[in-house]
Write a protein that binds this DNA or RNA. Structure first.
Lengths: 191, 191
DNA sequence: ATTATCTATAGATCTATAGATAATGC
DNA sequence: ATTATCTATAGATCTATAGATAATGC
């Protein structure tokens, strides 16, 4: 266990990365600071030398988790591709590395002021991104369509994780995906 | 404080009704058994004469909260009316008496087996109901459309509660509502 | 000397249980 | 006698802090 300033920084990053993963998997109250520290390879006593409060960890972990979304968006060329990647069983089963907006949607209703502010800013970025993706295929109200697409994506990934019937879960993912693709490519018919 | 068997039954119902409201408002972990009992006008010690475990209260409260949805559906004549009632600021601001599928969507991902089973059954009912409402206006894949509408409704009400910007929150509700109405009534144009 | 991390623990929860109290119901 | 509810508390969390230990860095 190192004791240099550089070591402290890497420890800090390790703590935040563990939290960013576990919060997405288990919710913002789903893991305590002691277990996060333990998984990062340190003990609980040092926590408040790294963060002023538990909520500061939440905010930093949220910011880190949102960076995964930035990377995801950079590699997304069109709306069909986004839908094909987002509404999958692989994404549903890996919330820890998946979309933090989806994984923490329910928690945000009761989140701290600073956590909700960060979440809100990320929602605005995603709406702008969706709008841009829709501009090629969409004539009319791009903003409205972006709001619908984001709501449907977040709703479907959460619903697919909530239901205990595997067939229904799969049907939700694929059904919503196909419907939204149908809205982007009005020419194609399915089913 | 009564001590008869009839009194016990009304006490039991009072406990469950308090829980059904508070769980929707604060999440399934958002209130403890002691506070639920207190709000129902009794003390914590009697809890386990009413329920075998905390999770049994969760399941009963969930069933009670879902009855509100049954009543709501009975009074809903068409999809446009459903959208007009569901995606409102009044509903967003009153989760305790609103749609339990929406209020507890995020919690269900990590809920108990029995709670998720109950939730899953309710989702299936809602999908059947939405399908029936869509049958008049929809030609093709009613099931797919029902999956999209349910996902969009749950996503939008959660997102409107999650963001801290009031203007964005309102925009989500109204934007998604108008888009979905546009899908039900393809003839009408807006914006 | 400073500081990154450690061990240990205070104080505030929360679920669940034990045993007392005061009614009901045979 | 039975039972619905009460007071009190055990035991398991969890956040936050105090003080010790063992490195770094001037």
């Amino acid at each position: 266990m190192g004791h240099s300033r550089r070591d402290k920084q890497t420890t800090h990053e390790r703590i935040v990365r563990v939290a960013a993963k576990r919060f997405r998997e288990r919710g913002l109250e789903g893991i305590g600071v002691a277990d996060v520290m333990k998984e990062a390879g340190v003990t609980v006593g040092g926590f408040y030398k790294h963060f002023g409060s538990r909520d500061e960890l939440v905010v930093e972990a949220l910011a880190t988790a949102f960076k995964d979304l930035d990377v995801w968006e950079e590699h997304t060329a069109d709306m069909a591709q986004l839908l094909q990647n987002y509404l999958t069983e692989a994404h549903r089963d890996a919330p820890g590395t998946g979309c933090a907006m989806g994984a923490l949607l329910g928690d945000m209703t009761r989140g701290s002021k600073s956590a909700r502010a960060l979440y809100t800013a990320r929602v605005k970025r995603s709406l702008a991104f969706s709008s841009a993706l829709l501009s090629s295929s969409q004539r009319g109200d791009k903003r409205g369509r972006a709001l619908l697409f984001l709501s449907a994506l977040l709703g479907a990934i959460n619903l697919s994780r909530a239901v205990s019937d595997p067939n229904l879960s799969r049907e939700i993912l694929h059904g919503v995906r196909d419907e939204l693709i149908g809205l982007v490519k009005p020419g194609s018919h399915m089913g």
